[in-house]
Design a protein around this nucleic acid. Structure first.
Lengths: 187, 187
DNA sequence: ATGATTGCAGAATGATGTTCGGCATCAAGA
DNA sequence: TCTTGATGCCGAACATCATTCTGCAATCAT
């Protein structure tokens, strides 16, 4: 066997699975990326160069997409948040819908399965601005209807977290099923 | 008048409105916060210390919430994204619902206006993990029903942008409003 | 058993963050 | 109009940190 024993594409050096140390590093950097490598290394139990090496690898591999300043919505003048469900006539309306990403108010555009076609996350200055955005949507050919869910309070909003829940209590019927599911995981 | 003329709480030094330079800085830093102050200053037309001073102010004022490493969802082992609408019996179920934020799969929890009470953004390892999370939700007292919108494709997903749309074409009823909006534009 | 590879620590170096002093600009009040 | 205070910027100095290099230890494969 010219391959490792624990999977098909392990050890390919540029896209390896994250180990515990990587997740610890990501956990710290996801919270504060301005930390020095000395402090970072101390937090995870690594020397500064070792921490730097692993972070560099995480960046190259794409595990760290980018390091960015997260802007306060209210400070940027957009206190209103809403999720907009868009129903279109037929499929393939995505290209024309993507035009609205020109507006900095639009933060997410997803195609979803369910009783709606597209889902938008938008952040606007006011109700008027939301109305303007909806008007812009209805001007788009193929847009049949929209339903807006205006956020009243945000209790949690954070970026992608490095951790995963190891075990979902209600789903583990027996130990064997749990182990089988674990071994079949895609990562 | 011991106050500035252009508003109630201008010039309070710790929470001032963002000017054009601030938005330019935020625009750059929202994309890449690893840039050096020398390059940052060059991008916006400022000396390194001046850029540093303004960025420091933006951090102190809270306009920059934090500088964080943005993690690739697939690299962290959570390729599945879903929005979950939660219907509860009556109000005030938020405190018990907040317990699920323990799971790193849960990225957002909002209370919304519309035909549902709460809205969750969750990112899971698999459909099984999503099922486990839903089971966890149904175990929560007061949860009546959930509707999940599984994301098929994500066309856009970005953090809060510094800019705002100055003018919404469909909303401009007369020239005067348009000119006023134009003059107030940030860019 | 042995050679190759990987990952980490310590030290040196270069780049960068950060602070300081001085100057120009602007607004308010005499 | 002149003065006074505050603000924001620049250039230079200084301190800190990122980054690289070398060597060593552990691991895996032959």
């Amino acid at each position: 066997m010219n391959e490792n024993t624990d999977g098909i594409r392990r050890k390919r050096a540029s896209s390896r699975a994250l180990d515990d140390m990587d997740r610890k590093l990501l956990g710290v950097l996801a919270e504060d990326a301005t930390i020095s490598y000395a402090d970072l290394g101390e937090r995870v139990g690594l020397s500064p160069p070792a921490a730097h090496e692993r972070v560099k690898r995480l960046r190259r591999s794409g595990a760290i997409r980018k390091v960015a300043a997260l802007i306060d919505p209210e400070a940027s003048g957009k206190p209103m948040l809403a999720f907009v469900h868009v129903d279109t006539t037929g499929w393939g309306k995505t290209p024309v819908l993507l035009a609205i990403e020109e507006h900095p108010e639009v933060e997410e555009i997803h195609s979803v399965a369910g009783d709606t076609c597209m889902l938008l996350k938008v952040r606007t200055e006011s109700t008027h601005a939301l109305e303007g955005l909806l008007a812009r949507l209805y001007d788009t050919p193929g847009v049949k209807a929209t339903r807006s869910y205006v956020v009243l309070s945000t209790y949690l909003e954070r970026p992608v977290q490095p951790g995963v829940t190891a075990e979902w209590p209600a789903l583990v019927k027996n130990a064997q099923a749990g182990v089988a599911a674990f071994n079949n995981r895609p990562g």
